[in-house]
Lab assay of single mutants.
Amino acid sequence: CHSECLGNCSQPDDPTKCVACRNFYLDGRCVETCPPPYYHFQDWRCVNFSFCQDLHHKCKNSRRQGCHQYVIHNNKCIPECPSGYTMNSSNLLCTPCLGPCPKVCHLLEGEKTIDSVTSAQELRGCTVINGSLIINIRGGNNLAAELEANLGLIEEISGYLKIRRSYALVSLSFFRKLRLIRGETLEIGNYSFYALDNQNLRQLWDWSKHNLTITQGKLFFHYNPKLCLSEIHKMEEVSGTKGRQERNDIALKTNGDQASCENELLKFSYIRTSFDKILLRWEPYWPPDFRDLLGFMLFYKEAPYQNVTEFDGQDACGSNSWTVVDIDPPLRSNDPKSQNHPGWLMRGLKPWTQYAIFVKTLVTFSDERRTYGAKSDIIYVQTDATNPSVPLDPISVSNSSSQIILKWKPPSDPNGNITHYLVFWERQAEDSELFELDYCLKGLKLPSRTWSPPFESEDSQKHNQSEYEDSAGECCSCPKTDSQILKELEESSFRKTFEDYLHNVVFVPRKT
Rank of each mutant, 00 (worst) to 15 (best):
K103E: 09
K103I: 09
V104W: 14
L108R: 12
L108D: 01
L108S: 11
E109A: 12
G110T: 03
G110Y: 08
T113G: 11
I114Q: 00
I114E: 00
V117L: 09
T118R: 05
T118I: 05
T118E: 08
S119F: 05
A120G: 09
E122D: 08
C126M: 01
T127N: 12
V128W: 15
N130A: 03
G131C: 02
G131Q: 01
S132V: 01
S132G: 14
S132F: 00
L133A: 02
L133Q: 00
I134M: 04
I134A: 06
I134P: 00
I137F: 03
R138T: 02
R138L: 05
R138A: 12
G139T: 06
N141T: 07
N142Y: 01
A144V: 15
A145W: 12
A145S: 07
E146M: 09
L147V: 14
L147A: 11
E148K: 03
N150A: 04
N150R: 06
L151G: 03
G152T: 02
L153D: 09
L153Q: 13
I154L: 12
E155P: 00
E155F: 15
E156L: 07
E156R: 03
I157W: 00
S158H: 01
G159N: 04
Y160R: 05
L161F: 07
I163H: 00
I163C: 05
I163L: 04
R165L: 03
R165S: 13
S166F: 11
S166E: 01
Y167N: 13
V170S: 03
S171L: 01
S171N: 13
S171T: 09
L172E: 00
S173W: 11
R176A: 03
R176V: 10
L180W: 15
I181R: 00
G183K: 01
E184V: 07
E184F: 12
T185H: 09
T185S: 13
T185C: 00
T185N: 11
L186C: 15
L186M: 08
E187R: 11
E187M: 07
I188E: 08
I188H: 13
I188R: 13
G189F: 06
G189E: 03
N190K: 05
S192T: 01
S192P: 03
F193P: 00
F193H: 00
F193S: 00
Y194V: 14
Y194C: 14
Y194Q: 07
A195P: 00
A195F: 06
A195D: 02
Q199W: 12
N200F: 08
N200K: 15
Q203G: 00
D206W: 06
D206S: 10
S208Y: 12
S208V: 06
H210A: 07
H210L: 09
N211G: 12
L212F: 04
T213Y: 04
I214N: 03
T215E: 11
T215N: 13
T215Q: 10
T215C: 07
G217V: 00
K218T: 15
L219Q: 02
F221T: 08
H222E: 15
K226G: 06
K226D: 09
L227Q: 02
L229Y: 06
H233K: 15
H233C: 10
H233Q: 09
K234T: 10
K234E: 08
M235E: 00
E236P: 01
E237W: 15
E237H: 12
V238Y: 14
S239Y: 04
S239V: 12
T241L: 09
T241F: 12
T241R: 11
K242N: 11
Q245A: 15
Q245P: 12
N248I: 09
N248K: 09
N248C: 08
N248F: 12
N248E: 15
D249R: 04
A251H: 14
A251W: 11
L252K: 06
K253H: 06
T254F: 10
T254C: 14
T254A: 08
N255V: 02
D257W: 11
Q258L: 13
S260N: 02
C261D: 02
E262T: 09
E262R: 10
N263I: 12
E264T: 13
E264Q: 10
L266D: 00
K267G: 07
F268N: 00
S269W: 06
S269M: 05
Y270I: 15
I271Q: 02
I271S: 06
T273C: 14
T273V: 03
T273K: 14
S274I: 07
D276V: 01
D276A: 07
K277L: 14
I278R: 00
L279H: 13
L280C: 11
R281Y: 14
W282T: 04
E283R: 12
P284K: 06
W286F: 13
P287K: 03
D289K: 04
F290I: 02
R291C: 04
R291H: 06
R291M: 14
D292W: 15
L294K: 13
L294A: 08
G295Q: 08
L298I: 04
E302C: 03
Q306L: 05
N307P: 08
N307E: 15
N307D: 15
E310Y: 13
F311V: 07
D312C: 00
D312T: 12
G313Q: 11
Q314P: 02
D315K: 03
D315L: 06
C317P: 04
G318P: 08
S321N: 03
W322M: 03
T323H: 15
V324K: 01
I327F: 05
I327D: 01
D328L: 11
P329I: 03
P329H: 04
R332W: 02
S333T: 15
D335L: 12
D335P: 13
D335E: 10
D335G: 03
P336K: 05
K337G: 10
S338C: 07
Q339C: 10
H341A: 11
H341L: 11
H341P: 10
H341T: 09
P342D: 09
G348K: 01
L349G: 01
L349Y: 00
L349V: 07
P351H: 05
W352C: 06
W352P: 00
W352N: 03
Q354T: 13
Y355M: 02
L362P: 07
D367S: 06
E368P: 03
E368A: 05
E368Y: 09
R370N: 15
Y372K: 12
S376R: 00
D377R: 08
I378T: 06
I379P: 00
T383L: 02
T383M: 02
A385V: 08
A385H: 08
T386A: 15
S389T: 03
S389C: 13
P391L: 07
L392R: 12
P394R: 13
P394D: 03
V397R: 07
V397A: 12
V397G: 04
S398M: 03
N399F: 12
S400D: 06
S400G: 08
S400V: 11
S400W: 06
S402N: 15
Q403L: 13
Q403M: 11
I405T: 04
L406V: 08
K407H: 08
K409H: 04
K409S: 09
P411D: 01
P411H: 01
